[in-house]
Design a protein around this nucleic acid. Structure first.
Length: 495
RNA sequence: GCUCCGGUAGUAUAGUCCGGUCAAGUAUGGCGGCCUCUCGAGCCGCAGACCCGGGUUCGAAUCCCGGCCGGAGCACCA
């Protein structure tokens, strides 16, 4: 377990400030974990401040959705990364206007009325567009027309002046604010109050400075954005914060893109945001993946720029370490078949520890006594185990006794009592299987990570478990109790 | 195509800035064994990597050049 490397130039700042800035258009998922955990942990490490900033400045294409503001807050909360302060950009539009005007007045920006195609053509040729050279008074007049509706959506945009010969065309005179027809596309929070909306680089650049962010930690897809924003900072005479651009985090086989998640929900592929096939925090939570495991994983991966493709096993390993000591043990018989054992010599008492390493936690107790002339007892055992049975094979029912398999039919097994001691089972190399007395079971279903369901029987006393408890079904895997009614519902975490 | 960034075992990571102690450490996964009345945990062992080619140097995972491969950006998205 290692820590995070020190932050660059941390000593230059009185108080370290980081920020996580999601667009509330989806729930959070593992892909965002890097940004969140890194920002939070660094703030904590330097006793600094961690800001949550909702970047909801696109009412049209990346439309924010009201429910996600809260869902994101809850995700953060669950992850244990509580922000010290929260901002919402749609509340700050006047601030952006003010700064835009200042830029326009100082000829650091201009209102461009060229069509995107015309502008593109000019800028690719490293030529200024006609709007660029217009005097500040005209710019301000045009700005007014943007605000008051004389220009329609798409007819004008404010551009920040950069170097039109910059080797990277993407950096040349980038757009800062545009018009959105909020009659048609009202913002979910502020409706049609504003029709000029800042673009990412403008809002983000201004906010980072105004909020005193000292260290920007974001994905490397934002590298060119840093270069764009540096021009903005130069215009205002501000100093650009330290920036760390980490690589993409992927996990084999998981959809880590918002659009795919949203689309899957929309077309019904996924039932809900916590569908076990998803890598959303909601889904991970439901499966019993702990926030500690996620945090530790992210800390160990660190902030380097290379992309990472994690395997689920990596995450599971962290989680297992956390769950194993906590999770009490129970039996779950998946796909049950009936086992009848005959010729029991006496009644037996089985005592099963709730946790093998912590016997002091207590145990479950079962009394098995011979019934009827055949002196028999009946159990549920798993089909998977039963399929391994051959006639005359000796098998041990854990903590109970050993049996000899007599007859194997498609839905039941008949066996004879063989012997009692564990020692005997060992010398005979008898396989150990788990079992549930036929009257001590309750129906149980386990939802697997691929959303398939394993039906079976769990020990009746699982009824006492509270939802959200992590337990281990022995020889099956770690699960999280999801619901306890007549039927027990559990979600599978991992082996 | 243009502009950037990266490339250590299956996966992740340490080492790379400030060349030698790295014939490369750790975790996880795999394999084998021990232990354990779970296929969990624990313990022991084994296998497994510096993208390639040049150069500099007594010496390169570490520096330089070229190539290859991977990723990102090139939106009136964030």
């Amino acid at each position: 377990m290692k820590g995070l490397p020190p932050l660059p130039n941390a000593e230059k700042y009185e108080r370290i400030v980081t920020r996580f800035s999601p667009n509330p258009d989806c729930v959070l998922h593992l892909g965002s974990a890097r940004a969140i955990v890194l920002c939070y942990e660094y703030a904590k490490m330097y006793k600094g401040k961690f800001i949550l900033r909702f970047e909801d400045t696109d009412p049209k294409l990346k439309r924010p959705v009201p429910e996600f503001y809260d869902k994101i807050r809850e995700d953060l909360d669950w992850l244990g990364c509580k922000p010290d302060k929260e901002y919402i950009q749609s509340d700050r539009i006047p601030i952006y206007y003010e700064h835009a005007e200042k830029l326009l007045k100082n000829a650091k920006a201009y209102v461009c009325t060229c069509t995107p195609q015309d502008f593109r053509q000019k800028i690719l040729a490293k030529k200024p567009c006609p709007c660029r050279e217009l005097p500040p008074e005209t710019q301000l007049e045009r700005w007014e027309k943007m605000l008051n509706g004389k220009y329609a959506e798409g007819e004008a945009v404010v551009r920040v002046k950069t170097d039109i010969t910059h080797p990277n065309p993407a950096i040349r005179d980038w757009p800062a604010l545009r018009i959105i027809d909020t009659e048609k596309y009202p913002h979910p929070r502020v409706g049609g109050k504003y029709r000029v909306w800042p673009l990412y680089n403008f809002a983000c650049g201004i906010d980072d400075h105004l909020m005193g962010v000292t260290h920007i930690i974001r994905g490397k897809e934002h590298l060119t954005n840093q270069h764009r924003q540096e021009y903005l900072y130069a215009h205002f005479g501000w100093q650009y914060p330290e920036a760390i651009h980490y690589g993409r985090l992927k996990i084999t086989g998981a959809f880590l893109s918002k659009s795919k998640i949203v689309q899957g929900i929309r077309d019904g592929t996924f039932k809900s945001w916590d569908d076990p096939r998803l890598a959303t925090f909601l889904a991970l939570k439901r499966r019993g993946i702990t926030p500690e495991a996620i945090r530790q994983l992210i800390i160990d991966v660190g902030p380097k720029t290379a992309d990472v493709t994690l395997s689920w096993e990596n995450l599971y390993a962290y989680n297992r370490k956390i769950l194993d000591p906590k999770a009490n043990r129970y039996f779950f018989v998946s796909d049950p078949v009936q086992l009848t054992v005959q010729n029991l010599p006496k009644a037996f008492h089985a005592k099963l520890n709730l946790h093998p390493d912590y016997p002091e936690r207590g145990f479950r107790k079962y009394r098995v006594e011979p019934k009827g002339e055949a002196r028999e007892a009946q159990f549920w055992i798993s089909r998977e185990d039963f399929e391994k049975f051959e006639v005359n094979r000796v098998v041990r029912l854990m903590e109970l006794f050993n049996i000899t398999v007599r007859k194997v039919r498609s839905y039941e097994v008949e066996a004879d009592y063989h012997s009692e001691t564990y020692q005997e089972a060992r010398t005979l190399k008898a396989p150990l299987i788990h079992w549930i007395p036929i009257n001590e079971g309750m129906p149980c279903q386990v939802v697997m990570p691929d959303a398939t369901v394993k039906e079976g029987v769990a020990e009746k006393l699982c009824k006492k478990l509270k939802p959200d408890t992590a337990i281990q079904f022995e020889r099956f895997g770690f699960v999280r109790i999801d619901a306890v009614n007549k039927k027990l519902v559990a979600y599978y975490a991992h082996k």
